[in-house]
Design a protein around this nucleic acid. Sequence first.
DNA 1: GCGACAG
DNA 2: ATCTTGTCGC
Length: 232
Amino acid sequence: MNVLDNFLKICRNKDIKGAIEFQKSLLSYLCLENRFKNFKSICSFDISYDKSSRKNFAVAILLSYIKLEEVERSVIVEKADFPYVPGLLAFREGPAIVKVFKKLRNKPDLLLFDGHGIAHPRGMGIASMIGILLDRPSIGCAKSRLVGDFTEPAQMKGSISDLLYKGRKVGHVLRSRDKVKPIFVSAGHLIELDMATDIVLRCCHRYRLPKPVRMAHRLANQVRMDSNRMES
DNA sequence: GCGACAG
DNA sequence: ATCTTGTCGC
């Protein structure tokens, strides 16, 4: 059984212990070097959850890089089975993300996630995990901290401070706009932190969150609300 | 035992 | 994540 099938099996079985062991086993595949450059496209994902039907509305949105114009999108709806457990987000969202990824006709050069990469208790957040499983460069971009310590970056857009965890620099705390709450950037897979941070900042136009993440978020919500309107 | 805890 | 109103600051 290959790694991806193993992952999906753990998700189906809601195997918490197995999930943690799986994350540890993926560490040997993780690459934190810049193995690619001149990205031509960037893809972000998001899931909107409907409480009453307990369904996940998952979307992928593929944009050109650096212009950030939409190239393609894909959507899928499925029942959410794995619970949300801090540190195991990828097992809740991963199966749907893999599906929307595979549904795309174009293959993205780079994946951008709403969540952490290596800034994680076991160094294996959703961005790193999915990057490995899909064999693509990936970046983690979270709205809040999961692990690590940091000092507040300066108030000006572009200001950065280090996110430190267990004596290691695992990410950047980035002020993506003047005076907004900072975001947390970490390497996912096949990329270095400095390049990841540069790319995320280039994706922050006039909002706090990078455009691909924001677009995915809005699309997922829109799809969920449209679906609920069909019900009534 | 207590506090922390991506989405 | 979702639920949920008004409200504070630039």
